[in-house]
Computed example of a mutant assay.
Amino acid sequence: MSDNQELHALFGGTFDPIHFGHLKPVEALAAMTGLSKITLLPNNVPPHRPQPEATPAQRVAMVRLAIAGNPLFDLDLREMERETPSWTFETLTALRQTRGEKQPLAFIIGQDSLLSLHKWHRWQDLLSLTHLLVLKRPGYNNQLETPELQQWLSKHLTADPRQLHASPAGKIYLASTPLLAISATEIRTRRHHNQPCDGLLPAAVLAFINDAGLYRNP
């Protein structure tokens, strides 16, 4: 074992806004793998998608409201302090320096991100820094793009959560978490069309969105 250090996970995202499609699958993942802490990493400048509608301060406020009183979650704002794209490799390198070499660390991604991982900055070095925990996504393929990528995946796969605790990095775990077809895009679209979003995100987050007048047409 890694000096009996607990497995901690990191979960990055734009969180524009944070919703139950983010929260419920990772809570199920924590129960499934024995995770003791999930650190949310809001992106300031996401490299692979359009820029957020809400301001960085509003997105952080929504995350704080969503995780208030839940000891599973904490918040890391290092990516918010960057004016350049949030490259996962660089964030993980910095986190590894603060957490130490022996801390078992896992980075949570969606199945959609796994399928495009080979396009990420320094993707082949990620597993030297972290495990990958992959959440199922509705409607996505289970096969990677090429036989070589599929072979890379097979080499690192584990179905045993104990292996995630036993080493600091290097494994990929495909999680059969609940499939919640909720997206931030859907929530923003519903808001733009004055449609209700109850049940899609925490009540405190929805109250904040209403108070701030977010995701309304200009």
Rank of each mutant, 00 (worst) to 15 (best):
Leu179Glu: 13
Thr88Cys: 00
Glu145Arg: 12
Ala166Val: 00
Leu92Ile: 07
Arg191His: 14
Leu23Val: 02
Lys171Trp: 13
Gln150Cys: 10
Ala54Asp: 10
Asp74Lys: 05
Leu164Phe: 06
Gln51Cys: 09
Asp160Thr: 03
Thr189Trp: 13
Leu132Arg: 01
Arg96Val: 03
Gly170Met: 04
Leu133His: 03
Asp160Gly: 03
Trp123Arg: 02
Arg82Phe: 05
Leu201Glu: 02
Leu153Asn: 06
Met62Tyr: 10
Leu29Arg: 03
Ala9Lys: 00
Gln151Asp: 10
His156Gln: 12
Ile209Cys: 12
Lys155Val: 01
Leu72Lys: 10
Pro85His: 05
Val134Phe: 13
Leu29Trp: 08
Glu27Leu: 13
Gly199Arg: 10
Leu133Asn: 00
Leu206Arg: 12
Gly100Asp: 13
Leu133Tyr: 03
Asn44Val: 07
Ala68Arg: 14
Ile109Leu: 04
Ser116Lys: 09
Leu164Met: 04
Pro196Tyr: 15
Leu65Ile: 06
Glu148Ala: 09
Glu148Asn: 05
Arg162Asn: 15
Arg59Leu: 07
Arg82Asn: 04
Gln143Val: 08
Arg49Ile: 02
Met1Thr: 11
Leu126Tyr: 07
Arg122His: 11
Glu101Met: 13
Asn70Lys: 15
Phe15Ser: 08
Phe20Val: 08
Pro46Trp: 09
Arg137Pro: 01
Ala212Cys: 14
Thr91Asn: 04
Leu214Ser: 05
Gln58Pro: 01
Asp160Trp: 08
Cys197Leu: 07
Gly170Asp: 02
Asp125Gly: 06
Gln111His: 02
Leu72Ala: 12
Ala212Arg: 10
Leu129Pro: 05
Met1Trp: 14
Leu115Gln: 05
Ala181Gln: 13
Thr98Asn: 12
Gly213Ile: 09
Trp152Cys: 09
Leu10Lys: 01
